[in-house]
Design a protein around this nucleic acid. Sequence first.
DNA 1: TTCTAGTCAATACT
DNA 2: AGTATTGACTAGAA
Length: 982
Amino acid sequence: MVSPGVEGKDGNNLPASFRCEDSGAEDRIAHILSEANQALQQRSHNMNNSGTQDSFCDESGGSKSPLSVNNNGCNNNGQCPSPLSTSSARDRERERRMRKYENDDIPQEQVARIYQEELAKLAGIRLPHSLDDPRIPREHYQSLLFPHLFGGSLLEREDIRMALDAYHRELAKLAASSTSGSSPQFPPPHFHPGAPLPNINGLSGAQDLTMPKRLSPFDTKDKDDKSDKDDGSDIMRHVGSAFSLVRPKGERGDLSVGESNSGAPSPLNSILPPSNADDSSNASPLQRMASITNSLISQPTAPSVASPNQRPLKAVLPPITQQQFDQYNNLNTEDIVRKVKEQLSQYSISQRLFGESVLGLSQGSVSDLLARPKPWHMLTQKGREPFIRMKMFLEDENAVHKLVASQYKIAPEKLMRTGGYAGNPTPLTSAKVPAKPAELSIKVETSSLPPPPPPMPSTPQQIVPNMVHDFIKKSNSSSPGNSIPNSASHHRPPPPGLQPQPSVYEMAALTQDLDTQLITTKIKEALLANNIGQKIFGEAVLGLSQGSVSELLSKPKPWHMLSIKGREPFIRMQLWLADPLNVERLQHLKNERREANKRKRGLPHSNSPMDAYGSGTQGSSDNSNDSPNDSYSPGSSNAAAPPNKKQRVLFSEEQKEALKLAFALDPYPNIAAIEFLARELALSSRTITNWFHNHRMRLKQQTSSPLVQEASQPFDPVQFRLLLHQRLLELHKDKFPMFSFMGQQSDQSIEEGLDLTVSNTASRVHSDDDFFEEEDEDDDNEAIATFFSGSVASEDSCASNSSRTLHRKRKSLSLSMNSLPEKSMSAGGKHGVAPGSGSSRRKPVAPQWFNPSWHDDSDDEEVINGVCVFQNAINYSGNKERPEPNSPSEAVKPKYVDSREGSIVGGKSDEEESHEPQEAKVKAEKESTPEQKDIIPGAHAATVAAVAAADDDEEEEDGDKEEKREQVQLKEEVESDDENGD
DNA sequence: TTCTAGTCAATACT
DNA sequence: AGTATTGACTAGAA
């Protein structure tokens, strides 16, 4: 068995992971270790006498916490009844366990880990990563962590636990008696040592490293050790008292066992830097204590190497040295955050990567940190660390590039398509098959670049012409057998002589602005003129599917709205446009495919593996020179459609109407609403959710503007049914005249619920019976009850009452979705906040860009019966949760608007018309195109709109306004009840 | 966990 | 056959 931890006897034999970059810190740690090792020697001696050499382990392997055993011994006052049992009994027991451990010969690493975990549990602290290193003898952990408690001696978990108990009792005592009141982080008086412990780090405040000297509370230690050796109970007893001897700064306390020479400074002191002028001297005893612990615990270390036996350890960041702390003693966190955001955004560095490799934090923490940076003065020492790291990151010019490079290494295929055109690796490959090493190497290479070139010219044509050149050159040379550049089989590093070029990724990141509209227009023209299909273009040039190409070309997003990934296709388009042989290549490819198809038809079974996937145009896969197919072919194994391929749901018209209505009522339905809809429409919740997601996204895209606004009120099923009924009536009156009878008969169907259940298959027409089939009443009520959770009984009756009342007047209501202009889909704030300002269930989608001209439209806001029904997104600013004012996307917002108004106008495409609200509105009125008419800012507004619409309904002669008002009132009552119930 | 952005790919439409 | 639409899914962010 490996002898634990005696190798560092001289104290200088530091494990690598304890080394610090800053030699001062290393010295200090060396000092500590030296002391600890002295203690170890003594301990070792003792243990040898008793025939054991390890004291830390138990049979439970760490899974069963030993804490509970002893936990009853202490009370809040810090008084412990006489420990557990007699020391002799304990000694025997421990000895027994030690022997067991020895015999079991548990690997050192495992012990270390167990130890570490237990320790962390016990202390309620998070251990620094470096302590993860299993190669480090656990004695070092101990002595590093708690030398001030234990004098570096080895302890059993019970011992540690008891000591910690005592420690926490002392903390509590101090907190209670502390008169300073200056530290809000003190444990409250009721602090219970047995309770989950607060993070010690949290107590440290900003004083961690500004400890007063001579803080050494252990003057009874020697004596105790002598009398009781390592008996845990005694340690507990005395450690407890030791804390009461904490002395004010300047007083000298005895040092622990290992501290032999009286004149030597305490290791603690030596760790700690000279006090800063600001706050150290005022630190309370508790703060100082916490600081000690924290300093010890967080004493940074260099990264450790994962042992083969363990899963790879998280990268450990180099420590922040004291000098750095001193250097950055006052940072503008907001400013730092802003700059960091810019960098991350520009280079499309994920928060996860940034967090893990720069800050040592998780993605969530980074997100939080970046979104809500605290002011420097409010931060604790620990809290300041990330900002210091950020600052250092910003100051290091190469840091970004290192990160980008590492991001490539981590997930190249996630960042970039392995672009199709011009000699890049196969398009689609990345989407379907894990990237091959060869591909990786290219990426890494291209990404490990010198600092970024100057910003790209904003004129598309000028994008790095020589890069295009290189691309072309490469692609030409890369395809010996054919001139089509996209041979998947030719992934090779750039020619030796070539300068590393910016990757498309980097170009996307570095290009300041690009007129996407113009590019797509040109592309469309080129494709059209040369009879090149989107499919082949997408696959060969962009590495995208036909559908994606179609979307890109017809609805290009403005540059600034695109993520780096989203920009990439446009860069590729730009490169393609700049390629003099572009059309030629594609034509060639096209011909080849055609040939291949012919051949395939001629020899039906010749290319079996390739044929499996593709049919029709994809049949050419055998050629392996059209990249897209290559990506399919390697699968020869998989080839055919994946086994569990889900069949896509096809919504019926009614389902769509229902969904759109629901969307109008509440674009962000809660779970209950989604479930209700799912049940109502016989769709899965997942499908409903997807639909809402897609719809929000597409609405945003298609209208290029006004944003989906949360509903002012939660989804109301009663209202939903009512309105839906109207809507469907309207719809079917035209399509299916026989539905007109519903007008006389449908009261019941409304009250009992509409069955919108329709087949999920492609059937698009449903019989009357199918559609208005009565629904099981229990289900219905249940569904409704879901939404009136609260005082169910009264709510229920109220709901049904009101719905009955409403339905009695149903005929006077008409939700005319057609009459709602497209722009009604936004709501917001000219009236301060959205009509439903009371609700903030959901974060509204951030306005990314909009066309100011829309603001002038006469109907960007409409008032019906004195109620503002909808507003244009121009008023969005009144909303509560706006995006950061300095967020890049918003900053550029006007830019795009300009470009739309200006430069793009010339190249206006036919599709673009659909971007125009006016057009859309007309369109909506003409044929009720679904996408154009389905947002109402809130349920309330929808109700009002419905009523208002009825005003204009010629059919309703008896639509008396009094009654309508009544209805609305009623409805409101229901709603308010609903709210209360919520 | 849920949202957005970006996609794929099945399907509908021309 | 080409293009548009759209349900579903994934990754990253919040």
